[in-house]
């Protein structure tokens, strides 16, 4: 048995170290990529309306034409997450609107517990594609909603449908799920939220 040339041995060692470094870079890169998927997904959903995302920001109440030739049925669904002790419902179950026409719908919420709570409503639209054309000029879902023990409130939601909404959409459903955010909110934040006048 002859010993291998020591020179080739050291070059192999150096080669190995270099290859390992490169592969570790791939590993670290893919780990970063996994986390980058979170913001990427966010952006992707906002652009495509994928997964029923709505534009969750105030739309400009700009001048626009109203297309009276079409009428779209907008339905409202409310849900309470995981047995949260609130009552939460829309004042009307559905409205019929022309694209471009502005409507206001009130949502009723009541805190059935004996302690102050903070809630967040999260919207979702079906079909997902319609989410891109639903513009909210005012919505309780833009902020967290504080509600003192046992009190009730009416929360407005003002919206219009973009006149460019695809022709095949005749009905769209806007669903709100109410989440209990009390545990996630600092006590002083709860107090300051309560100081803010709620819409009546």
């Amino acid at each position: 048995m002859t010993a291998p040339n020591p020179n080739t041995k050291t070059t192999t060692r150096a080669d190995n170290a270099r290859t390992v470094r490169r592969l570790l870079l791939v590993v670290v890169g893919m780990f970063a990529f996994g986390f980058a998927l979170v913001p990427l997904y966010e952006v992707f959903c906002d652009i495509t309306g994928f997964n029923g995302r709505t534009k969750n920001e105030q739309a400009a109440a700009n001048q626009r034409s109203i297309d009276t030739s079409r009428t779209i049925n907008v339905q409202f669904i409310t849900r309470i997450n995981q047995g949260m002790p609130w009552e939460f419902k829309p004042e009307v179950r559905s409205v019929r609107v022309h694209p471009g026409e502005t409507k206001v719908v009130q949502f009723y919420a009541k805190n059935l517990t004996d302690h102050d709570m903070v809630a967040q409503a999260v919207p979702s639209v079906a079909p997902g594609q319609a989410g891109l054309y639903l513009n909210k000029t005012e919505c309780f879902c833009f902020n967290q909603q504080p509600l003192a023990a046992g009190s009730e409130t009416l929360m407005p939601m003002q919206f219009y449908l973009d006149p460019d909404i695809p022709k095949h959409i005749h009905t769209l459903t806007l669903s709100y799920t109410m989440y209990d955010m009390t545990a996630h909110t600092q006590p002083d934040v709860v107090a300051s939220l309560e100081a803010r006048p709620t819409a009546e």
């Binding site: 592969l23 791939v26 590993v27 670290v28 893919m30 780990f31 996994g34 986390f35 998927l37």
Partner: peptide, 14 residues
């Protein structure tokens, strides 16, 4: 493996 095991680690970490 080196491409996707880190992604599994991300999911588990999250």
């Amino acid at each position: 493996l080196i491409a996707v095991m880190p992604v599994l680690a991300c999911a588990a970490t999250m």
